[in-house]
Write a protein that binds this DNA or RNA. Structure first.
Lengths: 338, 338
DNA sequence: CTGAAAGCGCTTACAG
DNA sequence: CTGAAAGCGCTTACAG
């Protein structure tokens, strides 16, 4: 299994290997006929550049890390995160980067994803999914002189680079919409209490601000917790319905829990939105086709991934980054569930 | 941002850099006192080996590819795949490998995941999620002299390395169980028709074989299709119930669709298993807690990932691999839904 | 426009 | 037990 190198290509094309290097790197100053001969030799020999060999003199591997500080089995809980990962992968490919996946698989400690990443010097930088493990993790990245951009909020107050949707504003608008419809008791289905992330904190803040603006005192009994899954939304709704003074509207902090809420309400014989309104968050693809079509807050995980990746590539290139924190729009989409 | 290299460590410890190399690689023949001085220097300087520099003389990058020939947003459809990925990641880490993720994000062509992977020479081998794109993809891998192990079936008949559960036997047992309970009309909720994978084909084969053994003619009307999601299981069940002669049992080819089936049956006023039995496949964590607890077929995605990863590492090391195809057990778990 | 030289940060025999 | 040499497959100035 012989390796074909730049020198084999050069010999085959009858040029020096430096000229081959120029062609591979699309550098000017190679006469067209020579370039074509070399390109043909590359195809004929099925030559593929050795990334390690390129990395060494370049001080650049064109590999970026994707740090997910939890076990991969939990990825499916969050379609929005999957959208981010997908767009990161697409963006990386379009810009000539490879993606190194670093999760905390097999460990219950999110910090392990970071430790594994820094163990070897291999990537030019990292995109990190912001979690509670982020504080220590980001410190590790900084100590090892990595560029990194977080998908999420500045939970660890490192004042580095962050990209996220405007969760606060989105939740604020959703709540104002419900208030406008006359609702005064709004049940909240929050994300998990443990391992709370910036997004849900901000959504709650946006909700509370809207209540305060309307001079409504927040009733803590109206807030229950799910784990982003549909069944958890059902259970949470069960709790809200069991309240002495149940809410007339439910605002779930993601769409899947909102869908679970609708199912539970239906099976309790309640009509949505006539008897009780439901609003979700995320605008996942199935939200519009749901019965009833779900009122929700649209924001783009795809865009977050793109912007974060572009930011990281700029940092690696030493190009200027306008703002260290990018807040992407979130927009209320009113449908029939409210 | 200065890079600290093996030479810096050597200077700091007062030895030649070759000796540092020996310590990093845990080679014998370094006196204990020297080793300790070097290890301390490594810590003090926060030295991290440069993977590209190691790869070059070793002809080994300690990076393996994980080729997922579709968009990452679809990953969440399959918890079992996530379990595989998680265990691959854990195994890779335990064995000193890094994971390079290659998906077809941003493209509707699964082959792109392979093309991206082979574009540069960077990994020592690959683990590939077997799909319909596999035939051309595997050819690409072979042409480029990569070792690879498929998670799934030999759909492209390349007679290479494959690891999967015994889907046929699992489905066979599940069907025999239902037949034993007296069911003669068994509805099948299959995976998607388009992009069918070996696993569901094999499950169907196992089912058909069990029917044949019992001299029951398969009624094609009894087979409907879902997309592995819970809602799709509900819709599929609706179709089965609308049949002139509806089934007395439903066998869904994964648990989430089986759960959707149970919900639909309940909301149609039917009791499970008294009026109609339901059997799933996979034994996902929530299957046991479901109401009623779900009869299903247990197999281990974690084990598939582990075995496939170990197999790849052996191939890379040039170690002998006992069998090119490993079939892992699938076991019927009888609970209350049947 | 093309080639010869030096070097990236390591590892691997080979001396001593 | 430790050091000096050569080389992995490229890139990047520097000559010509």
């Amino acid at each position: 299994m012989k390796r074909v190198t730049i020198k084999d290509v050069a010999a085959h094309a009858g040029v020096s290997y430096q000229t081959v290097s120029r062609v591979i790197n699309n550098q000017p100053g190679v006469v067209e006929s020579t370039r074509q001969r070399i390109e043909q030799a590359i195809v004929e020999l099925n030559y593929r550049p050795n990334l390690a060999a390129r990395s060494l003199p370049r001080h650049r591997s064109n590999i970026i890390g994707l740090i997910v500080p939890y076990d991969a089995v939990y990825l499916f809980r969050d379609p929005n995160l999957l959208a981010q990962i997908s767009s990161i992968d697409a963006e990386a490919n379009a810009c000539g980067y490879n993606l190194l996946l670093s999760t905390a698989a097999g460990s219950d400690n999110g910090l392990d994803a970071y430790k594994r990443f820094v163990r070897n010097r291999v990537a030019d930088g990292a995109l990190v999914v912001e979690t509670a493990a982020g504080a220590a993790g980001n410190q590790l990245l900084s100590q090892n002189n990595y560029f990194y951009v977080s998908l999420g909020y500045d939970l660890s107050h490192t004042r580095k680079y962050f990209v996220h949707a405007d969760d606060r504003r989105g939740a604020n608008e959703a709540t104002r919409h419900l208030l406008h419809k006359g609702h005064r008791r709004i049940g909240i289905i929050n994300g998990p209490l443990i391992g709370a992330v910036g997004a849900t904190q901000e959504r709650l803040t946006g909700h509370l601000e809207a209540l305060a603006e309307a001079n409504i005192v927040f009733d803590p009994c109206l807030m229950v917790y799910g784990d982003y899954t549909r069944p958890s939304g059902q259970k949470a709704t069960e709790k809200l319905l069991a309240l002495p003074d149940p809410p007339t509207a439910i605002f779930a902090f993601n769409d899947r829990m909102a869908m679970g809420a609708v199912w539970m309400l239906k099976s309790a014989g309640l009509r949505v939105p006539e008897d009780i309104a439901v609003v979700g968050f995320d605008d996942i693809p199935t939200a519009a086709d749901f019965s009833p079509p779900l009122t929700t807050v649209r924001h783009s995980g795809v865009r977050v991934g793109q912007v974060a990746a572009q930011m990281l590539f700029k940092l690696i290139d030493g190009a200027p980054v306008e703002s260290p924190e990018v807040v992407l729009p979130a927009e209320l989409i009113v449908r029939q569930s409210s």
